[in-house]
Nucleic acid binder design. Structure first.
Lengths: 268, 268
DNA sequence: CGAAGTGTTGAAGCAAATCAATTTTCGTGG
DNA sequence: CCACGAAAATTGATTTGCTTCAACACTTCG
């Protein structure tokens, strides 16, 4: 198990948790498994008998079209659930695969039931599900309406924020292990075009990309270029008290990004 | 209020409900309001103080880019919730607007709390949320990977199934009130292109479209063309006992469409 | 050291965007 | 009921972002 627990780190951005809550969540992540690079965790048509959670590494949701083409629907970073729907939906309508070696923990429905008897935890898991849905919606906008360069920039901004909330990114850089092929399958553009657009982003000094490390010289500038507004990630809890939270807040507070209204302060 | 209650009609496709459950849901839809054509129900940045539900008409979720462009993220048909997240997320990250005149009911958080004390209803609402998320994911695939003609065809298939489950479509046709402009904003393509692609679909006799009525001469053929597989709508409850359910089942059973595995039969 | 995977480059072609004009439909009030 | 204006649909011409195909270079690693 990892310390600090990424699930706790993440959920604290949605709901204020007590020490006991955190310990309960932490405990339920005890029996993690290591998964290899590029393997399916769950396949379309499966009926998983436990909730899977990514503790380390990068995974993705994807669907395969009848043409054989792959469409990557979401990235799963540490703290993200693979199948938060439990047994309500029955069969999976898509697959989950690792993109790097991953640490995955399976949490039985029994344990989930026990955890969600606690209303704060129930609310936190509900929050996590809703944020995932919100991310899908933002991806729809991204893919539907933005040109390739801005799509990539937007994705990079999103990952910066999401990885920071779980302590997996520095203030302006993080490890970005996806291949250009995988980026293309995420944004619905060809590998060749990903390559060319990345070069353009580098030439414009919006990013640097070396040895799989993505560095963003001027986060505000990249965010402005991508029309990135982190509201949709709903990181509203400022009391999380972790470095990650502070960084996320810094980004959120950075003038240009927040357009709508002040982020709500939770109860003391 | 409408008879039969569309919310009940819809939820029965996810979870088997008792007569008492149905009556409770029905009651909570009592005080509906009529909304005009093309008005915002909820705006980005709002913090709604009740859950809004569409009982009649067609609405959409949308986001506005900084360029002023609109991106339609979802269609809301009768039985769909505008803001199922309650107060967990706080501010709305997108807006909801009517596309036709609509009947909308507001259900207070108090009432939702009361309803979800019932585990079957809680599960049904959870199911509805998860299906919405699943639809977003399928839209991502659609927009990301399919050419315009198939995108439109896929959307038409989805709406046929969704409208049938709430008794708002005949076996092969329904009222399709969206303008070509709105269709374009949903799929990320220009109005002009929507127009040309629709003509092609008509010429290929995949659809007929007259006076806002969409008719599909051969549903299987259109579904095959669009690579449409209704699994992602998770309509698993075959006991709903309504005409709508029967039609949806017929489509689901139609050989080509179901690729994965049999739909799970609920308990008797 | 070789093989496989990943990244890079060039050339040609196409799906879709854009711009601009025209026709048709629809809503509304006279 | 018709006339009018606005909204929606349609068409043509031109441009472009992106795809496709193909070849090649670099990296990684057994």
């Amino acid at each position: 198990m990892l310390n600090p627990n990424v699930l706790v780190l993440k959920l604290q951005h949605g709901v204020a948790l007590t020490k006991a809550d955190r310990e309960a969540l932490d405990l339920s992540c005890a029996r993690a498994q290591r998964e290899r690079h590029r393997v399916d965790i769950i396949r379309e048509g499966d009926e998983p008998d436990a909730v899977h959670l990514v503790l380390d590494g990068l995974a993705c949701r994807y669907k395969t079209l009848s043409s054989g083409q792959r469409s990557i629907i979401a990235y799963l970073v540490p703290g993200d659930f693979c199948n938060h729907h439990g047994d309500v939906l029955g069969t999976m309508d898509h697959s989950i695969a690792t993109l790097t070696a991953c640490t995955i923990v399976q949490i039985s429905y029994k344990t989930i039931e026990y955890l969600t008897a606690n209303p704060r935890i129930a609310r936190a898991l509900w929050w996590a599900t809703l944020v995932d849905e919100s991310i899908s919606r933002e991806w729809l906008v991204n893919i539907g309406r933005r040109p390739a360069g801005q799509q990539l920039a937007h994705l990079f901004c999103e990952l910066l924020v999401r990885l920071k909330t779980v302590g997996r990114a520095q203030h302006d850089s993080y490890r970005m292990p996806m291949t250009q092929d995988e980026l293309g399958d995420s944004l619905g553009i060809s590998t060749v075009h990903v390559n060319r657009v990345l070069q353009q982003l580098r030439q414009d000094e919006l990013i640097t990309l070396q040895d799989r490390m993505l560095q963003i010289p001027d986060v505000k500038r990249l965010a402005a270029f991508a029309d990135f507004n982190p509201n949709y990630l709903h990181l509203k809890n400022r009391r999380a008290g972790h470095v990650a939270a502070a960084s996320a807040r810094a980004l959120q507070d950075s003038g240009e990004l927040v357009k709508e209204r002040a982020v709500r302060m939770p109860l003391p």
